[in-house]
């Protein structure tokens, strides 16, 4: 015992002394100490920028001069965004007359993108999940093949679709042009650009959706299927009365995640070569205002606040829907 004490005293390094010091803290202090590093990072690189963005959105854009922010202008930036037409993007397939406010155009485009892509991803994701869940030889291999697109960097996802649709010689450019669906330069056209971006997004993120749905399926108690078999349920009935209702919460979470992702769409627009000037999403406006020929920091901040509000609205809708459907499905 004396030996033990001697031995542990020998280790009096700074680390062990620190660890010993934490031993005598109360649970409250100890918890806060453990949270400190994480919340310090979050404070500097998340909470502060959020607050700062919010504040900046009420200050005037300064186009010329060393200072990039002018005086306090209240909601002027927001008003401008919601009423002025678009000086950067030409959303010809949405609003040829360019009479709508710039933010509404981006909002409508982003919402369209979110709804179409999430719908496509949900259907495909469910199908992929079933494919990953079923048991057969080579199932592990198929799982890997399905997951891989999700792990592909966005810039490469963009590159792939650029190569498929690049001007003139992309694999699908010619055929689709001859069918009269796409113009000769599909990447530069608002409608076909939008379609390409949506397809690219569905291709990559269906896998993520499938992973979350699969996780939901795996956590369903397998005994329930045996019960259903004993009761003589058909394959469709098993899906309808067991798989679907029990996977539903996971499906909602997955859709929520993906909707949030889709509302922030930006990288795939740039990396396919479609570009923000052709398909201006909401996030596009932020980068255009920040890096464009004229820097409009106040407006950029106002757009980012509006994006956050849009995401917030969608999350609320989902949460309300989940709560409502849990009640009506009788799920706890």
């Amino acid at each position: 015992m004396a030996v033990e004490e001697a031995q542990s005293a020998n280790r009096g390094g700074i680390v062990s002394r620190l660890a010993t010091w934490t031993e005598n803290l109360s649970e409250q202090t100890y918890a806060l100490l453990l949270l400190a590093p994480g919340f310090l990072i979050l404070l500097l690189f998340a909470f502060w920028p959020l607050a700062s963005s919010f504040r900046m959105s009420f200050f005037k854009d300064v186009v010329v001069g060393p200072e990039s922010l002018g005086g306090f202008v209240g909601f002027e930036n927001y008003v401008k965004l919601l009423t002025d037409s678009n000086p950067f993007a030409t959303l010809t397939f949405l609003d040829p007359a360019m009479e709508t406010g710039i933010f509404q155009q981006a909002l409508i485009l982003t919402l369209l993108f979110a709804i179409i892509s999430v719908a496509g991803e949900t259907i495909l994701g469910f199908a992929y999940a079933m494919l990953m869940k079923a048991e057969y030889r080579g199932q592990r291999f198929v799982r890997v093949l399905i997951i891989i697109p999700w792990a592909i960097p966005i810039v490469i996802q963009g590159m792939i679709f650029f190569l498929l649709f690049r001007p003139g010689y992309g694999l699908l450019t010619g055929p689709l042009h001859q069918l009269g669906i796409f113009p000769q330069l599909p990447l530069g056209d608002a409608f076909s650009g939008f379609v390409i971006v949506t397809v690219a997004d569905v291709w990559k993120t269906s896998a993520f959706m499938a992973l979350l749905i699969l996780a939901g399926m795996e956590s369903v108690n397998q005994d329930l299927y045996d019960v259903a078999d004993v009761m003589g349920a058909s394959t469709w009935q098993r899906f309808r009365y067991i798989t679907f209702p029990l996977v539903f919460p996971a499906l909602m979470v997955a859709m929520l995640f993906r909707t949030m992702g889709a509302l922030r769409v930006y990288g795939i627009i740039e990396s396919t070569g479609v570009g923000c000037s052709t398909v201006p999403s909401m996030t596009c406006l932020v980068t255009q205002f920040t890096f464009g020929s004229t820097t409009l920091y106040g407006s950029a901040a106002a757009v980012s606040v509006l994006i956050a509000i849009t995401v917030g609205v969608f999350i609320s809708i989902y949460l309300l829907f989940i709560r409502y459907s849990n009640q009506s499905l009788g799920l706890a």
């Binding site: 015992m1 004490e5 542990s8 010993t20 031993e23 005598n24």
Partner: peptide
């Protein structure tokens, strides 16, 4: 009373 478990023998 206030020693951590590891130092109590």
């Amino acid at each position: 009373t206030n020693l951590p478990p590891k130092d109590r023998g």
